[in-house]
Design a protein around this nucleic acid. Structure first.
Lengths: 213, 213
DNA sequence: ACCTGAACACCGTTCAAGT
DNA sequence: ACCTGAACACCGTTCAAGT
Protein backbone atom coordinates (compact mmCIF):
# COMPACT_ATOMS: atom_id res chain seq x y z
CA UNK A 1 0.00 0.00 0.00
CA UNK A 2 2.82 2.41 0.86
CA UNK A 3 4.45 1.32 -2.36
CA UNK A 4 1.27 2.11 -4.27
CA UNK A 5 1.20 5.50 -2.56
CA UNK A 6 4.74 6.29 -3.68
CA UNK A 7 3.94 5.20 -7.24
CA UNK A 8 0.81 7.34 -7.33
CA UNK A 9 2.58 10.39 -5.94
CA UNK A 10 5.35 9.90 -8.51
CA UNK A 11 2.72 9.88 -11.24
CA UNK A 12 0.32 12.64 -10.29
CA UNK A 13 2.37 14.81 -7.92
CA UNK A 14 1.50 15.68 -4.36
CA UNK A 15 -1.48 17.87 -5.22
CA UNK A 16 -3.23 15.12 -7.13
CA UNK A 17 -2.42 12.64 -4.38
CA UNK A 18 -5.54 12.22 -2.26
CA UNK A 19 -6.91 9.46 -0.08
CA UNK A 20 -9.69 9.03 -2.57
CA UNK A 21 -7.52 8.70 -5.68
CA UNK A 22 -5.20 6.25 -3.89
CA UNK A 23 -8.20 4.18 -2.86
CA UNK A 24 -9.62 3.98 -6.38
CA UNK A 25 -6.11 3.19 -7.66
CA UNK A 26 -6.03 0.25 -5.28
CA UNK A 27 -9.59 -0.68 -6.19
CA UNK A 28 -10.91 -0.27 -2.67
CA UNK A 29 -13.33 2.03 -0.93
CA UNK A 30 -11.65 5.16 0.52
CA UNK A 31 -12.33 4.23 4.14
CA UNK A 32 -10.52 0.93 3.73
CA UNK A 33 -7.24 2.87 3.88
CA UNK A 34 -7.96 3.81 7.46
CA UNK A 35 -7.65 0.18 8.45
CA UNK A 36 -3.92 0.43 7.75
CA UNK A 37 -3.07 4.00 8.73
CA UNK A 38 -4.48 6.39 11.30
CA UNK A 39 -4.60 9.38 8.94
CA UNK A 40 -3.06 10.89 5.84
CA UNK A 41 -0.04 12.28 7.68
CA UNK A 42 0.91 8.81 8.88
CA UNK A 43 0.58 7.53 5.33
CA UNK A 44 2.86 10.28 4.04
CA UNK A 45 5.38 9.59 6.81
CA UNK A 46 5.48 5.97 5.74
CA UNK A 47 5.96 6.93 2.10
CA UNK A 48 8.83 9.26 2.99
CA UNK A 49 10.51 6.49 4.94
CA UNK A 50 10.14 4.22 1.92
CA UNK A 51 12.07 6.83 -0.06
CA UNK A 52 14.77 6.80 2.63
CA UNK A 53 15.06 3.05 2.20
CA UNK A 54 16.31 3.66 -1.34
CA UNK A 55 19.32 5.63 -0.11
CA UNK A 56 22.55 3.69 0.18
CA UNK A 57 24.47 3.71 3.44
CA UNK A 58 27.89 5.33 3.51
CA UNK A 59 30.66 2.76 3.90
CA UNK A 60 33.60 3.99 5.94
CA UNK A 61 36.02 1.52 4.33
CA UNK A 62 36.00 3.52 1.14
CA UNK A 63 37.25 6.62 2.95
CA UNK A 64 35.02 9.29 4.44
CA UNK A 65 35.09 11.57 1.44
CA UNK A 66 34.06 8.99 -1.11
CA UNK A 67 31.49 7.54 1.28
CA UNK A 68 29.90 10.94 1.93
CA UNK A 69 29.92 11.72 -1.76
CA UNK A 70 28.24 8.47 -2.74
CA UNK A 71 25.55 8.65 -0.12
CA UNK A 72 24.79 12.34 -0.96
CA UNK A 73 24.42 11.47 -4.64
CA UNK A 74 22.23 8.54 -3.68
CA UNK A 75 19.99 10.74 -1.53
CA UNK A 76 19.72 13.28 -4.29
CA UNK A 77 18.84 10.54 -6.80
CA UNK A 78 16.06 9.30 -4.52
CA UNK A 79 14.67 12.81 -4.13
CA UNK A 80 14.82 13.24 -7.89
CA UNK A 81 12.88 10.02 -8.48
CA UNK A 82 10.30 11.18 -5.94
CA UNK A 83 10.01 14.92 -6.32
CA UNK A 84 7.13 15.21 -3.88
CA UNK A 85 9.24 13.80 -1.03
CA UNK A 86 11.43 16.82 -0.25
CA UNK A 87 8.40 19.01 0.38
CA UNK A 88 7.21 16.46 2.92
CA UNK A 89 10.38 16.27 4.99
CA UNK A 90 8.88 19.15 6.91
CA UNK A 91 6.48 16.67 8.50
CA UNK A 92 6.77 17.27 12.22
CA UNK A 93 6.18 13.54 12.67
CA UNK A 94 8.87 11.33 14.13
CA UNK A 95 11.54 10.20 11.68
CA UNK A 96 10.95 6.67 10.40
CA UNK A 97 13.21 3.66 10.97
CA UNK A 98 14.86 3.93 7.55
CA UNK A 99 15.67 7.57 8.22
CA UNK A 100 17.19 6.61 11.58
CA UNK A 101 19.14 3.73 10.07
CA UNK A 102 20.49 6.06 7.42
CA UNK A 103 21.63 8.73 9.85
CA UNK A 104 23.05 6.15 12.22
CA UNK A 105 25.23 4.91 9.37
CA UNK A 106 26.20 8.48 8.58
CA UNK A 107 27.31 9.19 12.15
CA UNK A 108 29.10 5.85 12.36
CA UNK A 109 31.03 6.43 9.18
CA UNK A 110 32.22 9.89 10.22
CA UNK A 111 33.10 8.91 13.78
CA UNK A 112 35.08 5.89 12.56
CA UNK A 113 36.90 8.18 10.15
CA UNK A 114 38.17 10.22 13.07
CA UNK A 115 35.71 13.11 13.10
CA UNK A 116 34.81 14.62 16.47
CA UNK A 117 31.24 14.57 17.77
CA UNK A 118 30.68 18.18 16.95
CA UNK A 119 32.20 17.99 13.50
CA UNK A 120 30.18 14.89 12.72
CA UNK A 121 26.99 16.82 13.42
CA UNK A 122 28.21 19.80 11.40
CA UNK A 123 29.06 17.69 8.38
CA UNK A 124 25.83 15.70 8.46
CA UNK A 125 23.74 18.83 8.88
CA UNK A 126 25.51 20.70 6.10
CA UNK A 127 25.39 17.86 3.58
CA UNK A 128 21.74 17.08 4.26
CA UNK A 129 20.82 20.74 4.01
CA UNK A 130 22.60 21.04 0.67
CA UNK A 131 20.94 17.96 -0.81
CA UNK A 132 17.49 18.98 0.41
CA UNK A 133 17.92 22.51 -0.83
CA UNK A 134 19.26 21.42 -4.19
CA UNK A 135 16.30 19.08 -4.68
CA UNK A 136 13.97 21.93 -3.75
CA UNK A 137 15.67 24.27 -6.21
CA UNK A 138 15.47 21.71 -9.00
CA UNK A 139 11.78 21.14 -8.34
CA UNK A 140 11.24 24.88 -8.65
CA UNK A 141 13.00 25.31 -11.97
CA UNK A 142 11.02 24.00 -14.88
CA UNK A 143 13.45 22.65 -17.45
CA UNK A 144 14.93 19.18 -17.31
CA UNK A 145 17.85 18.44 -19.61
CA UNK A 146 20.80 20.67 -20.55
CA UNK A 147 19.30 21.19 -24.00
CA UNK A 148 15.91 22.10 -22.63
CA UNK A 149 17.48 24.49 -20.16
CA UNK A 150 19.50 26.20 -22.88
CA UNK A 151 16.37 26.60 -24.92
CA UNK A 152 14.41 27.87 -21.92
CA UNK A 153 17.11 30.38 -21.11
CA UNK A 154 17.14 31.51 -24.72
CA UNK A 155 13.37 31.93 -24.71
CA UNK A 156 13.51 33.86 -21.45
CA UNK A 157 16.17 36.07 -22.94
CA UNK A 158 14.14 36.65 -26.08
CA UNK A 159 11.00 37.97 -24.42
CA UNK A 160 12.63 39.89 -21.63
CA UNK A 161 10.90 43.24 -21.27
CA UNK A 162 13.27 46.10 -22.16
CA UNK A 163 13.00 47.57 -18.68
CA UNK A 164 14.07 44.24 -17.15
CA UNK A 165 17.33 44.45 -19.06
CA UNK A 166 17.95 47.73 -17.24
CA UNK A 167 16.83 46.43 -13.87
CA UNK A 168 18.66 43.11 -13.88
CA UNK A 169 21.76 43.49 -16.07
CA UNK A 170 23.87 40.87 -14.28
CA UNK A 171 21.09 38.33 -14.24
CA UNK A 172 20.58 38.86 -17.95
CA UNK A 173 24.26 38.39 -18.55
CA UNK A 174 24.26 35.02 -16.80
CA UNK A 175 21.07 33.90 -18.54
CA UNK A 176 22.70 34.71 -21.87
CA UNK A 177 25.71 32.65 -20.96
CA UNK A 178 23.51 29.74 -19.92
CA UNK A 179 21.67 30.02 -23.23
CA UNK A 180 25.00 29.40 -24.94
CA UNK A 181 26.35 26.61 -22.83
CA UNK A 182 23.34 24.90 -21.26
CA UNK A 183 22.76 23.91 -17.69
CA UNK A 184 23.22 20.42 -16.32
CA UNK A 185 21.68 19.66 -12.94
CA UNK A 186 23.85 16.60 -12.40
CA UNK A 187 27.05 18.53 -13.00
CA UNK A 188 25.81 21.49 -10.97
CA UNK A 189 25.04 19.20 -8.06
CA UNK A 190 28.41 17.47 -7.91
CA UNK A 191 30.33 20.73 -8.26
CA UNK A 192 28.55 22.10 -5.20
CA UNK A 193 28.97 18.80 -3.41
CA UNK A 194 32.72 18.65 -4.05
CA UNK A 195 32.99 22.27 -3.00
CA UNK A 196 31.38 21.39 0.33
CA UNK A 197 33.62 18.35 0.76
CA UNK A 198 36.62 20.63 0.20
CA UNK A 199 35.25 22.77 3.01
CA UNK A 200 34.87 19.70 5.21
CA UNK A 201 38.52 18.93 4.58
CA UNK A 202 39.46 22.38 5.85
CA UNK A 203 37.20 21.99 8.89
CA UNK A 204 38.66 18.57 9.58
CA UNK A 205 42.25 19.75 9.59
CA UNK A 206 41.29 22.71 11.80
CA UNK A 207 39.78 20.41 14.41
CA UNK A 208 42.77 18.12 14.18
CA UNK A 209 44.85 20.93 15.63
CA UNK A 210 42.76 20.88 18.80
CA UNK A 211 43.09 17.35 20.16
CA UNK A 212 40.82 18.24 23.09
CA UNK A 213 37.79 18.55 20.78
CA UNK B 1 -3.19 42.71 1.63
CA UNK B 2 -0.01 40.74 0.85
CA UNK B 3 1.35 42.08 4.11
CA UNK B 4 -1.73 40.81 5.93
CA UNK B 5 -1.27 37.44 4.25
CA UNK B 6 2.33 37.20 5.46
CA UNK B 7 1.28 38.15 8.99
CA UNK B 8 -1.51 35.58 9.02
CA UNK B 9 0.74 32.81 7.66
CA UNK B 10 3.33 33.71 10.32
CA UNK B 11 0.65 33.33 12.97
CA UNK B 12 -1.28 30.25 11.96
CA UNK B 13 1.13 28.43 9.64
CA UNK B 14 0.50 27.43 6.07
CA UNK B 15 -2.15 24.82 6.86
CA UNK B 16 -4.34 27.30 8.70
CA UNK B 17 -3.83 29.88 5.99
CA UNK B 18 -6.93 29.82 3.77
CA UNK B 19 -8.62 32.34 1.55
CA UNK B 20 -11.50 32.36 3.96
CA UNK B 21 -9.48 33.02 7.13
CA UNK B 22 -7.52 35.77 5.39
CA UNK B 23 -10.75 37.36 4.27
CA UNK B 24 -12.28 37.36 7.74
CA UNK B 25 -8.98 38.65 9.14
CA UNK B 26 -9.26 41.58 6.74
CA UNK B 27 -12.95 41.98 7.55
CA UNK B 28 -14.09 41.39 3.97
CA UNK B 29 -16.10 38.76 2.18
CA UNK B 30 -13.91 35.90 0.79
CA UNK B 31 -14.61 36.73 -2.86
CA UNK B 32 -13.33 40.27 -2.39
CA UNK B 33 -9.79 38.85 -2.45
CA UNK B 34 -10.27 37.80 -6.06
CA UNK B 35 -10.49 41.46 -7.05
CA UNK B 36 -6.79 41.82 -6.22
CA UNK B 37 -5.44 38.41 -7.10
CA UNK B 38 -6.33 35.78 -9.72
CA UNK B 39 -6.08 32.79 -7.39
CA UNK B 40 -4.45 31.51 -4.25
CA UNK B 41 -1.19 30.58 -5.99
CA UNK B 42 -0.73 34.15 -7.19
CA UNK B 43 -1.34 35.37 -3.66
CA UNK B 44 1.27 32.99 -2.29
CA UNK B 45 3.74 34.04 -5.00
CA UNK B 46 3.26 37.64 -3.93
CA UNK B 47 3.78 36.75 -0.30
CA UNK B 48 7.00 34.87 -1.10
CA UNK B 49 8.30 37.87 -3.00
CA UNK B 50 7.53 40.04 -0.01
CA UNK B 51 9.76 37.76 2.03
CA UNK B 52 12.51 38.19 -0.58
CA UNK B 53 12.21 41.93 -0.14
CA UNK B 54 13.44 41.51 3.43
CA UNK B 55 16.74 40.00 2.27
CA UNK B 56 19.68 42.40 2.08
CA UNK B 57 21.65 42.67 -1.13
CA UNK B 58 25.28 41.57 -1.12
CA UNK B 59 27.65 44.50 -1.44
CA UNK B 60 30.80 43.74 -3.39
CA UNK B 61 32.77 46.55 -1.73
CA UNK B 62 32.95 44.55 1.47
CA UNK B 63 34.70 41.68 -0.30
CA UNK B 64 32.92 38.71 -1.83
CA UNK B 65 33.25 36.46 1.16
CA UNK B 66 31.79 38.86 3.68
CA UNK B 67 29.09 39.91 1.21
CA UNK B 68 28.03 36.32 0.54
CA UNK B 69 28.08 35.53 4.22
CA UNK B 70 25.92 38.51 5.16
CA UNK B 71 23.36 37.92 2.46
CA UNK B 72 23.12 34.18 3.29
CA UNK B 73 22.53 34.97 6.94
CA UNK B 74 19.97 37.55 5.93
CA UNK B 75 18.12 35.05 3.73
CA UNK B 76 18.14 32.50 6.49
CA UNK B 77 16.81 35.07 8.96
CA UNK B 78 13.95 35.89 6.61
CA UNK B 79 13.10 32.21 6.20
CA UNK B 80 13.21 31.81 9.96
CA UNK B 81 10.81 34.70 10.48
CA UNK B 82 8.49 33.20 7.88
CA UNK B 83 8.76 29.44 8.28
CA UNK B 84 6.02 28.75 5.75
CA UNK B 85 7.96 30.45 2.95
CA UNK B 86 10.59 27.78 2.24
CA UNK B 87 7.93 25.17 1.55
CA UNK B 88 6.45 27.52 -1.04
CA UNK B 89 9.62 28.17 -3.01
CA UNK B 90 8.61 25.10 -4.97
CA UNK B 91 5.93 27.20 -6.64
CA UNK B 92 6.40 26.67 -10.35
CA UNK B 93 5.27 30.27 -10.83
CA UNK B 94 7.66 32.85 -12.25
CA UNK B 95 10.05 34.36 -9.69
CA UNK B 96 8.91 37.75 -8.44
CA UNK B 97 10.71 41.08 -8.95
CA UNK B 98 12.29 41.06 -5.49
CA UNK B 99 13.65 37.59 -6.13
CA UNK B 100 15.09 38.76 -9.45
CA UNK B 101 16.55 41.89 -7.90
CA UNK B 102 18.15 39.78 -5.21
CA UNK B 103 19.76 37.31 -7.61
CA UNK B 104 20.83 40.07 -9.94
CA UNK B 105 22.72 41.62 -7.03
CA UNK B 106 24.20 38.22 -6.22
CA UNK B 107 25.49 37.71 -9.75
CA UNK B 108 26.77 41.26 -9.93
CA UNK B 109 28.68 40.96 -6.69
CA UNK B 110 30.39 37.73 -7.69
CA UNK B 111 31.22 38.83 -11.23
CA UNK B 112 32.69 42.09 -9.96
CA UNK B 113 34.76 40.10 -7.50
CA UNK B 114 36.41 38.27 -10.39
CA UNK B 115 34.40 35.05 -10.49
CA UNK B 116 33.81 33.43 -13.87
CA UNK B 117 30.31 32.96 -15.26
CA UNK B 118 30.27 29.29 -14.45
CA UNK B 119 31.65 29.71 -10.96
CA UNK B 120 29.18 32.48 -10.24
CA UNK B 121 26.33 30.10 -11.01
CA UNK B 122 27.91 27.33 -8.95
CA UNK B 123 28.37 29.53 -5.92
CA UNK B 124 24.89 31.03 -6.09
CA UNK B 125 23.30 27.63 -6.54
CA UNK B 126 25.26 26.03 -3.72
CA UNK B 127 24.65 28.82 -1.22
CA UNK B 128 20.94 29.05 -2.00
CA UNK B 129 20.55 25.29 -1.76
CA UNK B 130 22.28 25.26 1.62
CA UNK B 131 20.15 28.05 3.06
CA UNK B 132 16.91 26.54 1.75
CA UNK B 133 17.83 23.10 3.00
CA UNK B 134 18.90 24.37 6.40
CA UNK B 135 15.63 26.25 6.81
CA UNK B 136 13.76 23.11 5.82
CA UNK B 137 15.71 21.03 8.34
CA UNK B 138 15.08 23.54 11.10
CA UNK B 139 11.37 23.56 10.34
CA UNK B 140 11.38 19.77 10.66
CA UNK B 141 13.08 19.62 14.02
CA UNK B 142 10.86 20.62 16.86
CA UNK B 143 13.00 22.30 19.49
CA UNK B 144 13.96 25.94 19.41
CA UNK B 145 16.67 27.08 21.80
CA UNK B 146 19.90 25.31 22.82
CA UNK B 147 18.40 24.57 26.24
CA UNK B 148 15.22 23.16 24.76
CA UNK B 149 17.18 21.02 22.36
CA UNK B 150 19.37 19.63 25.12
CA UNK B 151 16.27 18.76 27.07
CA UNK B 152 14.61 17.24 24.03
CA UNK B 153 17.67 15.16 23.28
CA UNK B 154 17.79 14.01 26.90
CA UNK B 155 14.12 13.06 26.78
CA UNK B 156 14.61 11.18 23.53
CA UNK B 157 17.53 9.38 25.08
CA UNK B 158 15.53 8.49 28.18
CA UNK B 159 12.66 6.76 26.44
CA UNK B 160 14.63 5.09 23.68
CA UNK B 161 13.43 1.52 23.28
CA UNK B 162 16.15 -0.97 24.22
CA UNK B 163 16.18 -2.44 20.74
CA UNK B 164 16.78 1.00 19.23
CA UNK B 165 20.01 1.26 21.23
CA UNK B 166 21.16 -1.85 19.45
CA UNK B 167 19.94 -0.73 16.04
CA UNK B 168 21.26 2.82 16.10
CA UNK B 169 24.32 2.89 18.38
CA UNK B 170 26.06 5.79 16.65
CA UNK B 171 22.94 7.89 16.51
CA UNK B 172 22.42 7.29 20.21
CA UNK B 173 25.99 8.31 20.92
CA UNK B 174 25.52 11.63 19.17
CA UNK B 175 22.17 12.27 20.82
CA UNK B 176 23.81 11.70 24.20
CA UNK B 177 26.52 14.17 23.35
CA UNK B 178 23.93 16.73 22.26
CA UNK B 179 22.07 16.19 25.52
CA UNK B 180 25.23 17.28 27.31
CA UNK B 181 26.22 20.25 25.24
CA UNK B 182 23.04 21.49 23.58
CA UNK B 183 22.40 22.41 19.99
CA UNK B 184 22.37 25.93 18.64
CA UNK B 185 20.81 26.47 15.22
CA UNK B 186 22.52 29.81 14.72
CA UNK B 187 25.95 28.36 15.40
CA UNK B 188 25.22 25.27 13.34
CA UNK B 189 24.19 27.41 10.41
CA UNK B 190 27.27 29.63 10.35
CA UNK B 191 29.65 26.68 10.76
CA UNK B 192 28.18 25.07 7.66
CA UNK B 193 28.15 28.41 5.87
CA UNK B 194 31.81 29.10 6.60
CA UNK B 195 32.64 25.56 5.57
CA UNK B 196 31.01 26.20 2.20
CA UNK B 197 32.77 29.53 1.82
CA UNK B 198 36.06 27.73 2.47
CA UNK B 199 35.09 25.42 -0.36
CA UNK B 200 34.34 28.40 -2.59
CA UNK B 201 37.79 29.69 -1.85
CA UNK B 202 39.25 26.43 -3.10
CA UNK B 203 37.06 26.46 -6.20
CA UNK B 204 38.01 30.06 -6.87
CA UNK B 205 41.72 29.42 -6.81
CA UNK B 206 41.27 26.33 -9.02
CA UNK B 207 39.49 28.34 -11.68
CA UNK B 208 42.11 31.03 -11.40
CA UNK B 209 44.62 28.51 -12.78
CA UNK B 210 42.61 28.20 -16.00
CA UNK B 211 42.53 31.71 -17.45
CA UNK B 212 40.54 30.54 -20.48
CA UNK B 213 37.24 29.83 -18.68
C1' DA C 1 -17.34 -7.39 15.15
C1' DC C 2 -16.57 -5.69 10.87
C1' DC C 3 -17.29 -3.17 6.63
C1' DT C 4 -19.25 0.72 4.15
C1' DG C 5 -21.58 4.45 2.31
C1' DA C 6 -23.80 8.57 3.58
C1' DA C 7 -22.72 12.66 5.94
C1' DC C 8 -19.95 16.44 8.10
C1' DA C 9 -17.03 20.30 8.11
C1' DC C 10 -14.11 22.21 5.48
C1' DC C 11 -11.58 24.04 1.09
C1' DG C 12 -10.80 27.07 -3.54
C1' DT C 13 -13.45 28.90 -6.95
C1' DT C 14 -17.60 29.75 -10.12
C1' DC C 15 -21.50 32.12 -11.28
C1' DA C 16 -25.97 33.84 -11.28
C1' DA C 17 -28.67 36.84 -8.89
C1' DG C 18 -29.13 41.06 -6.83
C1' DT C 19 -27.85 46.23 -6.64
C1' DA D 1 -20.86 47.48 -14.15
C1' DC D 2 -20.00 45.93 -9.79
C1' DC D 3 -20.48 43.34 -5.55
C1' DT D 4 -21.95 39.19 -3.09
C1' DG D 5 -23.78 35.15 -1.30
C1' DA D 6 -25.33 30.76 -2.63
C1' DA D 7 -23.61 26.87 -4.92
C1' DC D 8 -20.27 23.56 -7.00
C1' DA D 9 -16.81 20.17 -6.92
C1' DC D 10 -13.71 18.70 -4.16
C1' DC D 11 -11.09 17.26 0.29
C1' DG D 12 -9.97 14.34 4.95
C1' DT D 13 -12.45 12.12 8.26
C1' DT D 14 -16.52 10.65 11.31
C1' DC D 15 -20.07 7.74 12.35
C1' DA D 16 -24.24 5.39 12.20
C1' DA D 17 -26.41 2.06 9.71
C1' DG D 18 -26.19 -2.14 7.62
C1' DT D 19 -24.22 -7.11 7.45
Amino acid sequence: MLRAGVALADDVGIDGFTMRTLATELGVVPMALYKHVANKQELLDGMVDLVWSEVIEPRAERGWRRAMRERSVSLRDALERHRWAVGLMEAHGRPGPENLRQHNAMMGCLRKSGFSFRTTVHVTSTLDAYVYGFALQQKTLSFETPEESAEAAAATQRDIPPEAAMLYPHLLEVVSELARSGYDYDEEFVVGLDLILDGVDVLRSDWRQEPAD
